[in-house]
Amino acid sequence: MRRSEFERAVADEFGARGGPVLNDLVLTSLGDLTASEAIHAGMPPKDIWLALCIEMDVAPERRYGAGRLEPRRR
């Protein structure tokens, strides 16, 4: 997962709550860092996304492939 995909996934899943989720929610599975702190520490976006999904109880079918753009139609 690229960082742009991570940002799209957060926006799609959490909408206006995305900012507070990234900045305020402490993720114990990531060493008690927020998602923003984990990004700045260089952790892989996919690991951060999955930690957010677990903590926020995101349905499994919305966890994988989130943030990817739909393929262009020709």
Rank of each mutant, 00 (worst) to 15 (best):
K46H: 08
A59S: 09
G31Y: 03
V26M: 01
I39N: 07
A59R: 07
I54T: 15
L27G: 04
E55Y: 00
L27H: 09
W49V: 13
E55F: 02
Y64P: 00
M56Q: 15
P45F: 12
A35V: 04
A35H: 01
K46V: 12
C53D: 06
I39K: 09
D32I: 01
I48P: 07
V26W: 05
G65V: 00
A51L: 10
S29M: 10
A59H: 08
G65L: 01
C53P: 05
P44Y: 09
S29R: 14
E55R: 06
K46C: 12
G31H: 04
A38F: 03
C53L: 07
P44M: 13
I54Q: 12
L50D: 10
H40G: 13
E61D: 14
P44H: 15
R63T: 01
P45Q: 08
R62N: 07
L27D: 08
G31V: 02
M43A: 12
Y64Q: 06
A35E: 04
S29E: 14
G31Q: 01
A66M: 03
A38L: 06
R63W: 08
D57R: 11
I39C: 09
I48L: 13
G42L: 03
A51K: 09
T28Q: 06
A41S: 06
Y64N: 05
S36R: 13
A59D: 13
M56G: 00
C53T: 08
D32R: 12
A35Q: 02
E37K: 06
D47I: 02
A35G: 01
E55M: 02
H40T: 15
A38H: 08
D47Q: 15
G65N: 00
